[in-house]
Amino acid sequence: PAVAQSAINGSKMSITSANITSPQEDSFVMRMSGLVTDTGPFDAEIEMAGPIQVYSDGVLLGEMIMDPISSKAGVGAKLESSPTFRVTNKEGFGDFSGRMLRTESFTWTLDGQVNIIAMGMTLTGIRLRKEITMKGMGNFPGPVTVQSMRLTGGNPDYLVIEMVVGIISPSNVGISVGHVEMDAYYSGHRMGRVIIPDMVLKPGMNSVSSRMHYAPQDPSAVAAGRDLLSKYVMAQDSVMGVAGTEDSTTIQSLRPALQAIRFTTVVPGLRNQPLIKQA
């Protein structure tokens, strides 16, 4: 066991890409790809003896049972696993999700027990403790662009404006958030609600389909809204802001991250396209 423990201690684990899908109130699916290197001179099968606990900055976030890892002597192993991550600390995970969105990188500490099968023997009670660093979203440092915008309908309460927004994520972690809503602002006045029916952010450029319920309320907001629409019709660009709110998502553990979203985008004026979408 001491030799096996030494081999585990000396090995290195890295995640090259990850994808968070199927978010629920207390769980999600975490698909991970990566490498395990410096595993020693023997072929070995590494099986999880139970859930692997996940920490960030010393705070327990949750746990997951990773798939077995097949290691080759002198080569290491490819890490391919799609475990269900069970959130056991909603407040802690909420704080972490906010940091993941704001920072350029974050580190997870994995801690648990594994069994090692090698040379016809099964060794139990081996501790796996590894730190893995992944890229954060850095508060979306690239320009957020409105790729298209078109009035598609409305009712006495609001106009419906369909938009496709370009968002660049520098992270190597993709995430599916589900239904998201945020507030839109122009010249410091709330213009309405931006609704993203199924928000998915993958690494790199994302074209996110959304719709805005344009409904400025007080007189000053109505006046600002007229200015915004006037500039749009006259082919003049405008700058709008988007901000997350406490009710941007129904998933409690993701609320701190979405509530912290703040960005501005240039709304291009109407150029060579119809204002109203044809039926």
Rank of each mutant, 00 (worst) to 15 (best):
L128N: 05
G50I: 03
L229D: 08
V160D: 08
M134H: 05
I168H: 09
I20R: 01
G154W: 00
G76I: 04
I261Y: 06
D43G: 15
N272V: 02
K130M: 06
Q147T: 12
I8F: 10
A223T: 14
F106D: 10
M100W: 12
E47I: 07
L159D: 07
K72H: 13
Q147D: 12
I195D: 14
E25Q: 14
S187I: 04
M205H: 05
N19R: 08
V87C: 00
G244P: 00
G244S: 10
G34E: 13
D183Q: 04
D43N: 15
D218Q: 15
S14W: 05
L228S: 14
Q273M: 07
S248L: 02
G34V: 15
G225W: 00
G154D: 05
Q259E: 02
R262H: 11
G142Y: 12
P197C: 07
K202W: 10
F85Q: 00
L123S: 08
M191G: 10
T16D: 14
T249F: 05
V239I: 09
L60A: 04
S17H: 11
F263W: 15
L101C: 07
R211A: 14
N172C: 09
G241H: 01
T249P: 10
Y186M: 04
R31L: 05
Q259V: 04
S70L: 09
T39L: 01
V239N: 05
P41C: 02
N19S: 10
S176E: 15
T265N: 09
I69F: 07
I126P: 03
A118P: 06
S97Y: 03
D26V: 02
M149Q: 13
N115P: 09
G62W: 00
D43A: 07
G204R: 14
R99G: 08
I8A: 01
P216R: 10
V200W: 03
R150K: 09
Q53Y: 11
F263Y: 12
L270K: 15
V200F: 08
I161R: 01
T16K: 13
R190G: 07
G120V: 11
A73M: 00
Y214E: 10
E246V: 04
A4M: 08
S17P: 02
N155M: 05
P274F: 03
S14G: 06
D157L: 15
Q113Y: 07
Q113G: 11
Q5E: 10
I251C: 05
V54N: 13
G98S: 11
M137S: 14
S207H: 13
E246G: 12
R262V: 11
R193I: 06
T264I: 04
